[in-house]
Nucleic acid binder design. Sequence first.
RNA 1: GCCCACGUAGCUCAGUCGGUAGAGCACAUCCUUGGUAAGGAUGAGGUCACCGGUUCAAAUCCGGUCGUGGGCUCCA
Length: 643
Amino acid sequence: MSKQEKVRLTFPDGSVREYPKGTTPQQILEEMSPQFRKKVLAAKLNDSILELNRPIEEDGEFRFLTWEDKEGKYVFWHSSAHLMAQAIKRIFPQAKLGIGPPIEDGFYYDIELDRPITPEDFEKIEKEMARIVEEDYPIIRKVLPREKALEFFKQIHEDLKIELINDLPEDEVITAYSQGEFTDLCRGPHLVSTGKIGKNFKLLSVAGAYWRGDEKNKMLQRVYATSYPKKKMLEEHLHRIEEAKKRDHRKLGKQLDLFSIQESIGNGLILWHPKGARVRRIMEEFWINEHYKHGYELVYTPHVAKLQLWETSGHTGFYRENMFPPMVMDDVEYQLKPMNCPFHITIYKSHLRSYRDLPMRFAEFGTVYRYERSGVLHGLMRVRGFTQDDAHIFCTPDQLTDEIVKVLDLVIYILQTFGFNEYDVYLSTRPEKYVGTLENWDAATNALQNALEVKGLEYEIDPGEGVFYGPKIDIKIRDVLGRSWQCSTVQVDFNLPERFDMEYIGEDGKPHRPIMVHRALFGSLERFFGILIEHYAGAFPLWLAPVQVTLLPIADRHHNYAHRIYQELRNANVRVELDTRNEKVGFKIREAEVNKIPYMVIIGDKEVENQTLSVRHKGEGDLGSMTLDEFRDRLLHEIKLKK
RNA sequence: GCCCACGUAGCUCAGUCGGUAGAGCACAUCCUUGGUAAGGAUGAGGUCACCGGUUCAAAUCCGGUCGUGGGCUCCA
């Protein structure tokens, strides 16, 4: 009798156990508690994920994957994608399958079909999916030799799959997964049967998507859907989608009369209405004060400049597709500015600079215009005209890391003040199209990396995502709903100083080349405002609220007293409104609540007689009566705290 | 830009089979002076996004243009 071969598995608790070679995770799972068994979706051996019925052939670190693991979720969604594809194929046998991966909150499948799939079809597809779940087919993995695979998918007319197989590397093990009559080319892994997916799924939307993400290819129909192991989880997810819709800045922008985008003006161009403009002013004033404190000087520059300037900067070569077309005046071409940097450089160059002048920090709310393809425009988030809170720091190589660290400090301080405490930091490296030498790119990337190390910030590298003139640190904030938004950016640039032949005179009396740092904290005022609206669901904290207080006199005879309060609060710089309309107080309160005004002050006989105010806070309700002084102090204190 | 869907009063939306336009809110006027989330009456408000076509007749059907929305990054 030959001794049976064994595999040694190390479990997460550190224990090491031996099993006969070929044991499946399912068999190991039998040892676990029934509650745990129910939760397990797949297993992980070293770096590969296995379905539960896959024999284990080698030693290694072993653990089970549940919904708590990202990989577990992905197996679940991946199997869900197959389930949906199978249902779609049953209903539309002529459909051809593209790819069907799991994504952040669910999964999709790209389908080629001779008719559009509409939301009306969703119910039918979902019904068919439920049927397949009930039929509970085992999901069977098959390894196919390349020829066999090609033959099989040719036979079932899955042309797109054939394209995929042909593009797989020579040595790749080709696998397919079958469930009932349905077989899909797939790397896996999957749940063990369609029944394990359960019925908590929902088709969400359908959209066009280029085959393999290339706009030269044909367009497929991408069906988005999601699924969860528990009904409650699906409901919560759908609820989150509803919440996000309620917070949509486009909707709130209209409701609260903050901004608009109008056909007569042009798409991607924003009108800031008075209330939106108030919030913007506050953002700007706060920003300006902080920048003065941190050694920046404000500058203003024009919206257009000669095209030649953009040729010098390299924009016409590397950025042209994002620029508005030039205009001709007096036989000279002028360009609407897509960036502010050449202007700040030109200001720098207006004098001979000494090393003693450095670092110089020029800041500006610079409004730039960029041509964005019509299909990518989105409310305030992606527009064609926007104002950057831009600044350029000119410094010596010695000063560089320190300057970047200072910028990072300022970024974090400003973002926190606006209520954002979570961020993801990315270091983006040299893209395919770039200007400058490799040495400079390396030096710039190192400087950014150093600063991140000094700050002890965790970050990810985003290869090839830098700007054409230099690498950058991007800081993406996470809002209340956990969504991530790109705002702040810090970019090191050795190239523009060279192109513009910038100099400073060093200690040695000789000319040297300064280094330039581009940076923005809000990124764009438009986008940041949009994010703020969604973050606060339109209910801005007191210091940002466009209207902080509304005075609600009960009857005409209270107007005089109300006017006096109004003037006093205005004098104290409080953004206050007086509602003298002929309406009942309940009506006025309702309107103030709907408009998300933080404080309401009710003024009636009692208040006039006692020279007090009856104060109500949005959300908190009636705060009782207080004197004007008490109320004003409360407001000013709360405004100062900016919370 | 591309695919799909959508575009009706300031806003949110209804409008059946093609027969010539409706509601609520907002607005105006009047009544009401009311104490913590909607008092009442009356009135005004539309080239049904725009251009063209089919038809006796188009908000409705067809084509085009403009705009908006979902996506086109996740690669078996």
